[in-house]
Amino acid sequence: MGQCHAALLTDRFVLRVAGEDARKFLQGLITSDINALEESSAVHAGLLNPQGKILFDFFVVAVEGAFLIDIAKEKASELRQRLGFYRLRAAVEIAEEPAFKVAASWGDRPRLPGGASAYADPRLPELGLRVLLPSNADVAELGCAPVPEGNYHALRICLGVPEGGRDYAFGDTFPHEALFDQLRGVDFAKGCFIGQEVVSRMEHRGTARKRIVPVEGDCPLPAPGTSIEADGVAIGTLGSVSGTSGLALIRLDRAGEALSRGAALAAGGVKIALRRPAFAHFAVPALPA
């Protein structure tokens, strides 16, 4: 099995968008450029509200004249309804795709069983592949060492890659705060999409004060949702946790002010340090040397 690891992502679901207007339909709605897709490749994208906040995050995969959407299971029905609302008279069919389930594989390349397809995670190469497995297939058929779903999330947390619903609240978070601008989740050159004016303004003015960043505790971190404080003042919220590592949505300006005056940052009484992800092009404050 070498160095290949694979985990079934039981909290994911697949929708299919097909029809002669499918490409144009999605292109006018979502944050990434559908026209950049080739068959068996994917984009990371979101669907925003008119105020520019994320309602859904997902992957879109091009397959045989249609598009498959890899989305959190708990958001799939809502996205299907939302897309139906925008469809109007477009020649588009939106349906559940029960023929597939989603797995993640990283390390050496997996062996794909019949009917399966894989695409590179478009956010970050280190995340490996996402695999669309036939619903009757087993993750062990990938020829990798099967590992718990938590191992995938531990990898994601280590790399500093957030996930909607775990690290930020839908309907209350801008793409820049969720690192869409850092992880290929928004295309600023593609033209119009819902919420585009707000997102473009944040990009050009550099006004994102909150960001999701990795945090490291001096002992195991508390539960997701715990407030992160500096001198008793809330500056952020803890998201995904794996032992002493986690992700948190932080007001970086307030964190910087606190650290500059020697204040400690803490989550539920656990002292934490902030860390800048290797892919990030923004500064993350740290204690003065």
Rank of each mutant, 00 (worst) to 15 (best):
L29Y: 02
D253Q: 12
R251T: 10
Q51D: 04
V233S: 11
L112P: 05
A22K: 01
N49C: 07
E149G: 01
C144P: 09
S32F: 08
V61E: 05
V270S: 06
Y86F: 14
G128N: 14
P162V: 01
K24Y: 12
F180Y: 14
I34W: 00
L221E: 03
S117G: 09
K190A: 06
L183W: 05
R80E: 15
N151H: 13
I54F: 15
A116N: 07
E141Y: 02
L129K: 01
V213P: 00
K53W: 06
T31L: 04
T226M: 14
G171F: 11
E97V: 05
A18H: 13
G114Q: 02
L79D: 10
V43I: 14
C4H: 06
G143P: 12
A42L: 08
R111Q: 11
V17S: 12
I228Y: 06
I69H: 11
L132C: 07
D138R: 14
I228N: 02
V241M: 15
P148E: 10
S117C: 10
R166Y: 14
I212G: 07
T226K: 03
G232A: 11
Q196G: 05
L155T: 08
D253T: 00
Q196P: 09
F193V: 07
E39P: 01
S240K: 02
I69A: 11
L8V: 05
G19F: 09
A6D: 09
A178G: 03
N151D: 14
L142K: 13
L47I: 06
A154G: 13
T31A: 04
Q51S: 06
E141N: 04
E216D: 12
R276Y: 07
F279K: 13
S227C: 08
S227T: 08
E141M: 08
G185V: 05
D70N: 06
R80Y: 14
L127Q: 15
L26P: 09
P162D: 04
F13Q: 07
P285D: 12
R275Q: 08
G256R: 04
G185R: 00
A7K: 12
A95Y: 02
G268N: 13
H44Q: 00
P50I: 05
D11Q: 15
A137M: 11
G107P: 01
N136S: 15
Y119W: 06
E163T: 11
F25C: 02
K73I: 11
V233F: 06
L287V: 15
F170A: 05
L155Q: 08
C219L: 10
V213I: 07
G19I: 00
A76C: 14
L15T: 13
A90L: 09
G171R: 00
P285H: 07
P122R: 02
D172Y: 07
K73C: 04
L238M: 02
F282A: 02
L155N: 01
A169K: 09
P214R: 11
A118K: 08
T237G: 07
I54H: 12
F67K: 12
E149V: 00
R109P: 10
L179T: 05
F13E: 03
E78T: 10
P148K: 10
V61Q: 04
G269N: 10
Q27L: 03
K75H: 09
P134Y: 04
V215P: 06
L83G: 01
T237Y: 03
Y168F: 15
P122A: 06
R201I: 07
A6M: 05
V161W: 01
R275K: 11
